[in-house]
Each structure stands twice: as C-alpha cells, then as structure tokens.
Amino acid sequence: MSEAGSPAGMMPSTPVVGTGRRHLNPSLFVGGGLVLLVVAMALVSYVWTPYPPMRVLGTEAYQTPNADFWLGTDRFRRDVLSQILVGARTTLYVGVVAVGVAALVGVPLGILAAMSGGWLGQTVMRANDILLAFPALLLAIMFAALYGGSTQVAMIAIGIATIPSFARITRSGALGVMSTDYVTAARAAGHGPFAIALRHVLPNVAGLVIVQASVAFAIAILAEAALAYLGLGTPTGQASWGRMLYEAQSTLRSAPHLVLVPGAAIALAVLGFNLFGDGLRDYLDPKLERR
C-alpha cells in the first residue's frame, strides 16, 4: 500500500489515543466553577465567618446589605452571609450522604440485575420501578412524619428515593459491558461472576455512575431545600438555605433580600451540579471524544 494510494479526502485517521481530543466544554467549566464555589464556601465557614452564624447580634433586624453586614441581617438579627456560608456545609453534607446511600445500594443492585438476568434480575428491576414510581418528596415527608424532621432523616430519605436512578443507569451500562468479548475472556480465564463484576463491570460503568452522581447531587440539594422549607428537614437553630427561605417567606415584600439570597444560592448550586454533570457526561463519552 503506497502513500499515493490514499486519496486526500480519505486521510486514514490515526487512532485517537488517550485524551488528546478532549476539551473542557463550557458546561463542565461553568458547572465546575459553581461547584467549587459551593465547596469553597463550606470550607471557608469552618475557619471564618463574619459573625457567629446563629447568634442574635446587638443590631437591627432586616438590614439590607451594607458595609458591616454584606448580605444584611434577618428578622432574628443574625448575619445572613454567615448563615449562607455555614448553610453550604449542610447542602454538601446532604448531597454527599444522599448520593452515597443511593450509589452504594443502587450500583450493586444494577450490576446484580444485569449479570443475573432471569427472574432475579427481573425482580430487582420491578422492585426498582415501584420505588421509582414513588415521588422522592413524598417519601421524605413520610419519613419525617415517622422519624421526626432532621437533616439526617431528610438525606436518608432522599438517598433511598434516588436508588432507582442509580440502579437503572448502572444496569444499562453493565448490560453493555457483559456483552463484550473481554467479559467472555474473563469467564474463559476462570473468573467467577463476583470477580468479573469487580474487575470489569464496575470500572467500566464508573463513568456513568459519576455523571449520575453529580446530577443526583443537584436533585438532593433541591429536595433538602424543599424539605427544610416545609419545616420537615433541618430544624430551627441550624443553618440551611431551605430553612432560611422558610423563615423569610413572611417578609417577602418588606425584606426581599432575605429570600433572594438563599434562593440564589440554591439555584446556583443546583445549576452548578447539573451543568457539571452534563459537562462530565460529554467529557467522558467515548463517542463524542472522536469528533
């Protein structure tokens, strides 16, 4: 085969190797920035807040943002910025635990369903469908009614409600992996199903699971805010963005900044994790990589 033989229009494309063609797409960039911002706020709150976040200060209530109180004060004369910073912790805490619970249960179930097939796989997926049909918020309200409203109960409930999405996406990825020759090769090499799940299936669905985790994180943040707003999540006396919204709703007209600030924080955090998830999906997708 001579070089002259290949027409210019059909340049034999050199196989795309590694990460050469991957670009930081805007979603990943903006989403990642917002996520980092939330993380930074949470970290900063451990070492510095302008004022103790939950302490009633000797100053006026309902102050609009000014030099002393950058984001104003609420009706209990507490500093809003300090609460927002500490609230970022609650937000991340809830997200991490809820997503952790969902992934730890959902991913093994998805792999089990994909690898077992037959009645066991069917049973797992049908049980999954039943849970999926149950609105997350309803489940959380039920849990709150049973075990009392607290951050912990809220995030466990949110986590349980998020299991099906993890199980589903893991199963679909795992089915693809199970049909490859390298899994057949692993069977022919003498590996049992457990070793195959750990060595081949899990690493190859990890990308999917990470993307799902970032999207689920956004949903968890929103759900926690909703629960706190309903008075079923984080109790009074602890900083939470949803809780701040709840406490500010009666003064929506007179002190709108008390609603706008936590509302914007929630919106930006959710947006950030969603964009991050989208960006990550594009970044990890091997099909897009080739373009």
Partner: peptide, 17 residues
C-alpha cells in the same frame, strides 16, 4: 480454563479498555 483458551474476533472489544 487452563486446558483451553480463546482468541476473539474483535480486537477492540476483547481487551478491557
């Protein structure tokens, strides 16, 4: 498994990436 071994058709799918 140590008596008999396999080589597959598709060199893309037969090795775990």
């Amino acid at each position: 498994r140590h008596t008999l071994q396999l080589v597959f058709q598709d060199p893309m799918s037969s090795l775990d990436p």
